[in-house]
Nucleic acid binder design. Structure first.
Length: 124
RNA sequence: CAGACAGACUGGGCGGCCGCUGCCGGAGAUCGGGGCCCCGCAGGCGAGAGCCGUGCGGAGUCUCAGGCGACUCCGGUGGAGGAAAGUCCGGACUCCGCAGGGCAGUGUGCCGGAUAACAUCCGGGACCUGAGCGUGAAGGCUCAGGGACGGCAAGUGCCACAGAAAAGAUACCGCCCGGCUUCCGCGAGGGAUUCGGGUAAGGGUGAAAAGGUGCGGUAAGAGCGCACCGCUCCGGCGGCGACGGCGGAGGCAGGGUAAACCCCACACGGAGCAAGACCAAAUAGGGAACGAGCCCGUCAGCAAUGGCGGCACGCGCCGGCCCGGCGCGGCAACCUCGAAAUGGGGCGCCCAGCAGUGGGCGAAAGUUCCGGGUAGGUCGCUACAGCGAACGCAGCAAUGCGGCGCGCAGAGGAAUGGCCGUCCUCGACAGAAUCCGGCUUACAGGUCUGUCUGCGAA
RNA sequence: CGGGACGUGGCUCAGCCUGGUAGAGCACUCGCUUGGGGUGCGAGGGGUCGGCAGUUCAAAUCUGCCCGUCCCGA
């Protein structure tokens, strides 16, 4: 368990424009049960230094109950590993349908791996 | 007792750690916008007293402002459904439209009631289906179930194929009568062919063939006559009414289809919370007011006109102001009548479902003002047709009235969760997005009530 | 969340309003033409009309309810 549980409300992408900026500058990266996008924000960005994460659960993932469950499991896994992200980073995650049924331990490991990759990519 | 069906209710429990969100209470540290006035410094004008207003800094006071707007922490409390779903109906609410009428369009459709309203619900009626009883067969009686159930007796259309004929009937095979010819027979008569007529019983076709059954009747037949049933019309009776039952008349007209056009009655303006209200960047655009030479020179061109330069004018920028410098702009306005007007006529465009008709608009740069409006923010946003029950009254009931009790999500890239342990009967369908009333569809297990069937006991 | 359109052979569509026979093009199969292929000519196969009910004698067509696809509105 990472030591720092950061402020979750500030750590979310909340605007359509935020998502669009990430999509414009980022390539699509693939993982086993999700794809992800990320970008670094400039130092003078008004949102501050907090790293932020956005989730997307579209219609193709299933009906409302399944989409809700996927989003909640993702959010919990992201919350537990938020400390791995460097400052001034925006990440967007697109989960796949198997997030619904995979074990939570595996999901946590995958999120941690992705955040580590983002941190490496941001430094480069 | 078991099964099926129908209806009503319910829709895993307990515990631990971590997390999200609304409201209430408490604590903490920090941050900000605007107005007014004062002081200091810098600046401009003036001979000066002084005046001007701009920038920077400081102090005070008022206000937003209510110990409150944002933030953090602590405590308490609430936090998906019976269908939250499909979006099929009906409303509330909001904005837009609305001189009045016509046409068109859409929906509903037995009767009465309930309701804010409905295509919903309750009660009733007729009809249909099934079972039982009954009858020669129907009609009839009892029970159960069903549902888009006004009008083809206003008009129009359609009814393929088959069949003779498909809608104010018809005559294919038949049946019957009469005539001609012919054959058989001694004869009475019989057969065949053909012509004329009668007939709607039988055959055959079809989804459907012009009341049904029985008896009489007849050349053969036929509501041709009679009985029962059905049907139509009339009368009066009961019922708020759909309708019921009674009496009389009529031999029977009127096939089906209106989820065909349509007729009748009734209802309906349109869009929808991404409605709409308030605040409001950047950029682009809109409206109003103000708004300047028929100048001179030169070049191109037949000309209209266009390019360049000058002076004047208008405007912007630099500047506190003047001077000055730099940059931009232009004699035109939809056409026409008229001396002209705020006048008349036309043209074009826009708006109003359509027609008639009505309303609005038609000039440059630039400045000022105004309004709309996007991103974004706030409200709408949950306390009401609210929920509960074993309350009372009215009603067969749906439901209404009165009293009692309860407070039950309110998010906004979108909360109501994640992980673990444990118990059992191992948990279905499924996630609020303005809110209600219904309908429809999906659904594991459990509880209760009713009906039917089977078995067992008495 | 709200509003609207569509679903017919393997593909793209017509037929639906006004109900009785499902049709066109491409594709497919066979035959002829050619030395062979293409082209051309001729013949043929292939459709629960998205599903379930209802109205009707009769439904792709009319009505209702479901399923799926697509489009529009901040």
């Amino acid at each position: 368990m990472p030591e720092a549980i950061l402020d979750w409300r500030r750590a979310r992408l909340r605007k359509h424009a935020d998502y669009q900026r990430v999509y414009q500058v980022s390539r699509r990266h693939a993982s086993a049960s999700m794809t992800y996008f990320f970008r670094e924000r400039p130092v003078d960005d008004p949102a501050g230094a907090q790293a932020r994460v956005g989730l997307t659960t579209g219609r193709v993932l299933g009906k409302a109950v399944e989409r809700n469950r996927i989003r909640r499991r993702m959010r919990e896994a992201v919350r537990l590993h938020l400390g791995l992200l460097p400052e001034r980073t925006d990440v967007v995650l697109h989960p796949r349908k198997n997030v619904l049924t995979m074990s939570f331990a595996l999901l946590e490991k995958e999120i941690a791996r992705i955040f580590a990759a983002v941190a490496a990519g941001a430094r480069a």
